[in-house]
Structure formats: C-alpha cells, structure tokens
C-alpha cells in the first residue's frame, strides 16, 4: 500500500515542514541549513541509540544539536552580515563533515537497537510512524502556538514581519533571528530523528535536497492556508502538516505509476516548480 508508507514518511518529515515554515513564513529568513541539520538529527539519533541511550532521552539531544546548527547560521548571518542563503550553505556544507565525524562512517544501520517504532505498544506496525509522528508534531504545534502568543513570541513575529517596527519597539532583531533559526532547525533535526528510525538506518547523504521537500510541503500548506483563508496560527501549522502529507502522497503516486526511482529528486524538483508556478499569483500579503 503505497499511500500508507507515503503518510508514514510524511508524518516523520512533518516537524521539518513546520520548522521551515517558521523560518520562511514567520521569521522571513530564507534558511537552507535544513539539509545539514536534518542529517545532524539522524546522526545524533543513530549514535545515541547505538550507545543504548533511551529513545526519549535522545529527543533533547537531537533538538539541542539542531538548535546549535540553526544558531550558527543566524550568528554568521547577523554578526558577520553575510546573506542568509550563503550563511545557510556554509553551515550546511560544514555540517556534512560534522555529521560524518559524529557517525564515524557514512552509514549506521539500526538492527538490534530499541527505538520508537520497534517497541510493542499495541499500534499495528504499519501505522506506527503515522500515529507516533502525528502525535509528536501535534504536541509540537500546541507548544509552538502557545509560545508564539507570549510576549516573546509577539516580538519574534514582529521581527519577521517588520524589522523597522520591531527595533523601534526595543526588539533586538539579531537575537530574534538567532532564536528563530535555532527553533526552526531543532524541528528539522527532529525529523531526522524520526526518519532514521522509520527507515532503520542513518546515512550521511540522507539530507541531500531535503530542503526542497520541505519547501514543497510549506508551499502546499501555504496554498491551503490562503485558499481556506485561515488566520489562526495553530490551524495554519496543521495545514503545513497536511501539505507535507500531500507532497509525499503525490511523490508516491508518481512512483507507483512506474516512474523510475532514479528520477525521484528530479520529480521532487519539478513538483516544487509546479507548486511555485501555480501559487505565486495567489499569495497575498500586506503592505509594509
């Protein structure tokens, strides 16, 4: 059943879509550290699980690692005044070596290790990633929604929305970018954590081009948000998760129709291109 595995992967990648949505739509920073921080999450997960660290203790480690990567990108961007895209590419590239260093080799299989999807908990094996992944991302959405409503959260949103307004009201925009990208990339690393356990191995190349998948999911989610005219932030985040599912379903559909898996990345890129082309005319935003 291709759609079950598509939903499974979609659920595992959903936290990444939320992270990239935050960076691009809320904080308005084009961050592509994603490829690196996703694999970083995977590397930390594989090594920690191999060292028999309990799976619930791996989560904070993964979040911390992702946050460090995001902070570094934002630090380079704000302190050294380097373009955010370039800062992201630099960190992403450097992370390749870091990830290889953490893993010690290019691939770590998880065969005998106890992990999130290997333990018996009454959920049928095929649905485990969907259920656990979805529950995790829903918890994250609730926490994030609450956070964005606080005074600090308002300052963060204002910083992304209007830098002039926020600094005139005592907000340090550099700090906001650092915190923002730290949060965003910790979510991305969490997706690496889930995918590693879903596929049963970590690979140093597993993050290549994943930012495009994230972008496609965010754009689909965003199209849904403007189509339905959703203003509530929590529901907007839910739409992004739906976008992530749809993106994986369409990819899986293409493969089930007999498309050679060699062309998977090509199809991904073309899909994102189509989404951008069809949604760019509809996006509305307020004058600044």
């Amino acid at each position: 059943m291709f759609y079950i595995s598509a939903l499974a992967l979609g659920s595992c990648l959903a936290t990444m879509a939320i992270g990239v949505f935050l960076a691009i739509k809320i904080f308005k920073i084009p961050d592509i550290t994603t490829d690196g921080s996703f694999t970083l999450g995977a590397a930390v997960t594989a090594v920690a699980l191999q060292a028999a660290v309990p799976v619930w203790c791996v989560i904070p480690l993964v979040l911390l690692a992702g946050a460090a990567a995001g902070f570094l990108t934002a630090f380079i961007h704000t302190r050294l005044k380097i373009d955010a895209l370039l800062a992201g590419i630099l960190v992403m590239t450097a992370l390749f070596s870091v990830n290889l260093g953490i893993m010690g080799r290019s691939n770590i299989p998880l065969i005998n290790e106890t992990h999130l999807f290997s333990t018996e908990n009454g959920i049928p094996q095929a649905y485990k990633p969907v259920v656990i992944g979805t529950v995790l991302v829903l918890i994250l959405i609730v926490l994030l929604f609450g956070f964005l409503l606080t005074d600090f959260g308002i300052a963060m949103r204002a910083s992304g929305d209007s830098a002039t307004m926020s600094e005139a009201n005592g907000v340090n925009n550099s700090t906001m970018k650092q915190v923002g990208l730290a949060i965003s990339n910790s979510f991305t690393a969490l997706a690496g954590f889930l995918v590693t356990q879903y596929q049963g191995f970590a690979d140093v190349n597993m993050g290549v081009g994943i930012v495009i998948t994230a972008l496609g999911s965010v754009l689909l989610g965003d199209a849904l948000i403007s189509f339905l005219g959703i203003r509530n932030m929590a529901l907007q985040l839910v739409c992004v998760v739906l976008g992530c599912w749809v993106f994986q379903l369409v990819l899986a559909l293409a493969l089930s129709l007999g498309v050679n898996p060699i062309f998977l990345k090509g199809i991904t890129a073309v899909m994102v291109l189509l989404i951008v082309a069809f949604t760019r005319f509809k996006s509305k935003s307020y004058a600044n």
Partner: peptide
C-alpha cells in the same frame, strides 16, 4: 512603517507596551 502588518492590532499594542 510603525506597525507590523500581519500581526493583529492588539499584538502591535502589546509589543509597544513593552517598548
């Protein structure tokens, strides 16, 4: 320039109250 367009009016005032 003095206000953040995507934020609600009340959120703009909240931030201003914390200037």
């Amino acid at each position: 320039s003095g206000t953040a367009p995507s934020l609600h009016v009340i959120d703009n005032f909240r931030l201003a109250a914390l200037r």
